[in-house]
Design a protein around this nucleic acid. Structure first.
Lengths: 347, 347
DNA sequence: TTGAAAGCGCTACCAT
DNA sequence: ATGGTAGCGCTTTCAA
């Protein structure tokens, strides 16, 4: 067939087979597998390893888990897995987890029902820990409060939660916008508009707060006609429309803060097609700092969301809590900072 | 504390506890859990369900797996998890898997060593199936040939493999480029250039083949100075440089096929900054059809890679093979098609 | 219609 | 320095 390794039979190789082949007891094999080799003859160890190799033995994690009560698995519940930023976070979480000998059990959950089902599944799989990597959609989480005591530790990233009994990691959406407004004012802007995201997400609301706070800080008037909805869950045509509306206001805004980078890209195109130059005639600022910001023309100035840091922090905090369940809860709020590129400039 | 559900003790609730609470045997509880309720009194069933609810019992998948020899888990090994296209595929794979009662165990593997380690881990976790979602980096896979007979079925997506003993899904990179060349010729282009990707990936080589085949098909001369390397693993400045080189060739190419969409975005910007208009002066075509193509100015014409279809097909084929191990191997080659937007036009 | 008991593949305790 | 064995929480025969 396709293999030239010894294949005793169709049956699975167990620790018993190894013990028999090596002429030792299962205990001794188990000790060898778990690196308890202090009191073991070099020769015994050799024989065991030879047997393992020749039988191509792979210890069953499931049998082991049953007795140790550990699965070496961490659950990850992601809202909107297609968000590239989450993916980048995953790219960091997975190696850290694996380095610590954990695997990641992945679930996508767009709504509460889905999420609840995922949590139940993961609990039945007896995961050792759970990370929520959420959008800031408002979702009920009361069912999380009633989890059995045997439930594993949970770390939440960006999840709206009424309950402060979990480790939490957020980022300062409002602060990021304030920093953007600061920079705009420094560049001489007095007419700053905002395209806001849907009210169904906390992040959107925080950015609106940031906008108002930024204006207030610099004694600029808040004008409701400088604020338009550009819901990134709706088609791009609606963002285009909102942009046109902003351009029609008098006096025309000299800067537009967009709901996110995708919306910003459309804003840029709309502005350019209207015959205006970026940033000479109008400044456009995005939000999220997605990789493609660098590839737009001009490269997009945007507010960076530290999702990657958040992901790394999440897994580190979780591993820490698994090791030390009683340590005090973490409530981290990471700063968002303005990344200045070429779509912003002086008036 | 935080819960108002009954919490008997710190101990985990087992099937035994449920049996005791319901006044029946564990067998009967097991039967109820596994929907073998045909020969069961309505009243018994009720009592069991009441006990389960009041104890908040969650059956242990690990104990169950030990006896059934199934884990209801599928392994997923991804090269370059940060690739947004892979993520979109995941977005489809996960729901399909979950619908069929499988969870996804996720591993990131950039190189062979990493991959091999991941495979070993997954085998020890006794996964029921394995999907490779790979970049087309050339990687040895001889270790996969020597897997024990007890290893689960494997489906490969886009993985270079010398062995045809697995289900395989590819896409026709060359065909996509040929389609692009066809369209360019139809638009009157005779001077078509290509920015090619690194030789370390099969996809790059196939696109070069497609380019040559396309030219040949239309009796166009192959000119080596119309081909430049734009390695997407290297910094964008190198792509810019390559673009400048192409623009300096005489006669200047009227169309550029870029290594991928990211490179295409940089090409567009470079071309525009050189004072040329897209597509009036020069046509730019990308590859991959990433979401941001729509947001560029002008929107990017590109060759679509059916990663999402591939992902869906992969999980379907895998589930099918798990159910029916002896069915004939699948070797699918999905077509790549040109998505015409506004960055391409007549000469 | 329900129950008793063996056994899945390990680990951990206690012996020797 | 090594081994015997109970038991982890289930499912699955077989019996009643």
């Amino acid at each position: 067939m396709t293999s030239n390794l010894p294949q005793r039979s169709g049956k699975r190789v167990t620790i018993k087979d190894v013990a028999q082949a090596a002429g030792v007891s299962v205990t001794t094999v188990s000790n060898a597998l778990n690196k308890r080799t202090d009191a073991m003859t070099e020769e015994t160890l050799q024989r065991i390893q030879a047997a393992i190799r020749s039988l191509d033995y792979r210890p069953s994690q499931v049998a082991r888990s049953l007795v140790t009560n550990r699965t070496a698995t961490i659950g990850l519940i992601i809202g909107e897995i297609e968000t590239p930023l989450f993916l980048q976070a995953l790219n960091l979480i997975e190696p850290i987890a694996r380095e610590a000998d954990y695997n990641l059990l992945l679930c996508n959950a767009r709504d509460v029902d889905d999420e609840r089902q995922a949590v139940n599944l993961l609990l039945e799989k007896r995961i050792d820990g759970l990370i929520f990597l959420s959008t800031s959609l408002y979702m009920a989480d009361d069912y999380l409060l009633n989890l059995p005591v045997s439930a594993p530790p949970i770390v939440m990233v960006n999840r709206t939660s009424l309950y402060d009994g979990f480790d939490h990691i957020h980022w300062d959406n409002a602060g990021g916008i304030i920093e953007a407004v600061d920079d705009l004012v420094r560049l001489g802007h007095r007419h700053i508009a905002q395209l806001r995201g849907p009210a169904s997400r906390r992040s959107s609301e925080e950015r609106v707060e940031g906008y108002r706070a930024g204006l207030e800080k610099h004694n600029l008037e808040y004008r409701s006609d400088y604020v338009r909805l550009a819901d990134f869950e709706r088609p791009p045509e609606t963002w285009e429309q909102a942009t046109h509306e902003l351009l029609a206001v008098s006096p025309r805004p000299t800067a537009i803060l967009a709901s996110n980078d995708t919306v910003a890209a459309i804003v840029m195109r709309t502005v350019q097609q209207a015959g205006l130059r970026i940033p000479q005639d109008i400044t456009v600022i995005g939000n999220d700092n997605q990789p493609f910001c660098n590839y737009l023309n001009p490269p997009l100035t945007t507010v960076d969301i530290p999702v990657i840091d958040a992901g790394q922090l999440a897994i580190e905090i979780l591993l820490d809590r698994i090791a030390n369940p009683t340590k005090t809860l973490e409530q981290v709020n990471l700063p968002c900072s303005l990344v200045v590129r070429e779509s912003s400039g002086a008036v």
